[in-house]
């Protein structure tokens, strides 16, 4: 299915969010996820399923003033 991932079009074969997270290889760093402008809490990452056209944002902390 086609989704938007961090602003770009992306194709996923597996609809599970968990599979996407693993594929992104976030290397144990801290991150947070929004889908369609709603926060998906960590506790739901294992079970959440993606849908066609979902807009996914994966964010992390960076330096800023």
């Amino acid at each position: 299915m086609q989704i938007q991932l961090n602003g770009k079009s992306f194709t996923v074969a597996d609809p599970s969010l968990a599979a996407l997270i693993e594929q992104m290889d976030l290397g144990g760093k801290r991150y947070a996820i929004e889908i369609n402008e709603e926060l998906i809490p960590r506790a739901e990452h294992a079970s959440h399923q993606l849908h066609e056209g979902d807009c996914v944002e994966i964010v992390q902390a960076i330096g800023g003033g």
């Binding site: 961090n6 992104m24 290889d25 760093k29 991150y31 947070a32 994966i58 960076i62 330096g63 800023g64």
Partner: peptide
Amino acid sequence: VTIAVRRTNLGQNADEPNIL
């Protein structure tokens, strides 16, 4: 200290030290 929240650089992560 202040920090900002921004999109992760997907696919370019492993070696970059994170601010945290």
